[in-house]
Design a protein around this nucleic acid. Sequence first.
DNA 1: CGCCAATCTGAACAACATCAAGTTCCATGG
DNA 2: CCATGGAACTTGATGTTGTTCAGATTGGCG
Lengths: 205, 205
Amino acid sequence: MSTATSAPEQSGRSYHHGDLRSALVCAAVARVEEVGAEHVSLRAVAAEVGVSPSAAYHHFADKDALLGEVAAQGLHQLVDSVSTQVASIPIGSREAARLRFRAAAQAYVEFALSHPQLFRVAFSPYCLEHPGVPTTDDGSVPVLSDLLNDLVSTGGLNATVRDGSEDVFVATLHGLATLTMQGMIPRERVPELLTKIEQLIGVSD
Amino acid sequence: MSTATSAPEQSGRSYHHGDLRSALVCAAVARVEEVGAEHVSLRAVAAEVGVSPSAAYHHFADKDALLGEVAAQGLHQLVDSVSTQVASIPIGSREAARLRFRAAAQAYVEFALSHPQLFRVAFSPYCLEHPGVPTTDDGSVPVLSDLLNDLVSTGGLNATVRDGSEDVFVATLHGLATLTMQGMIPRERVPELLTKIEQLIGVSD
DNA sequence: CGCCAATCTGAACAACATCAAGTTCCATGG
DNA sequence: CCATGGAACTTGATGTTGTTCAGATTGGCG
């Protein structure tokens, strides 16, 4: 029963846990991904870290606050994943701009499909209870905003149409990811639908 | 405290409850809209109907099954609401087709904003545990499919672009509704964004 | 070295989901 | 008219949950 779960340094199973707060968040994320947020118990998370249930209350007001942190973590991971994928494709030609757009879309959907429960909790009421999570204004949109500017400057998108349509793209990607994750859109149709989106905004002809 | 919720006949508060199953679903829907699905307790729902907690287990396998029914109900209400709004606008000119499209979008977003918790549970894992809920294939898309056909036949939309893009539209509407409901898109921007969408698909010029 | 504040434990509580066994009701057939 | 069977519901109990609180333990600061 040694608590070798994820403690940074098991310095003789000391009474104090190096960094309990983030250890709890980490375990909670894992638990959420396994069984879904609605079936996660505070006690199970605490047990996984090897700590008594009440210890958590020195770091979080209540269970919802812990899940709020999980939600924030999920949003952060999503934004990171999309940003990374987009950044891996060079800026330049009009074709490159289209590829970046597609990379963003694929990364978004990919994340939702590979971490469904985390994705779900990231867009649940939990994320609103605690501030400091990246919303459309400071987190996910900058990536997309650059993307669209890119498309415009390389002639792939009409400037007057582009203006102020970041949110429309976010909405489309988010809806696509959500519905695909829930099985309402078959995942094999996603590439085809992405092509369709490019057609609709006139990026591909 | 009479159980006048929705019993077909309150024949003297009899031991048997005329139609407990749907009464429970009805109360659960109300409770979900009040506090959100994750904070609904079986006991509270049963108490609201005036029945013992265990009575519910003669109609539902467990709490999740009850919430599954709530989810199905929510989806059904959503589809109904959108269908009704769309049907209230006559078919005919190209302008009428555009108005119908806009009515559908507005109804979708409207529903999400006025019943956020019900909307949320409708697109939660609960809806997948029980079959028989309208998915994109048999429930929400037919409305949209007609809508797009309408747009094509009146010259508002290119036929080759339209083909197979129902899901893209559903995704966009769903994403818009979801993100607006969660405050990630300010609700006052919705009309503007709908106009943007019409611009993008070339329906409005 | 001694003390303080932060950290964690253990036991406790009420509310919860769930289940087994008992109770009430209704319909049916004799 | 009454027994009888099964469905609908209740009661009571069990184990788990979120949450609290008094106290034990610790690292670090003076």
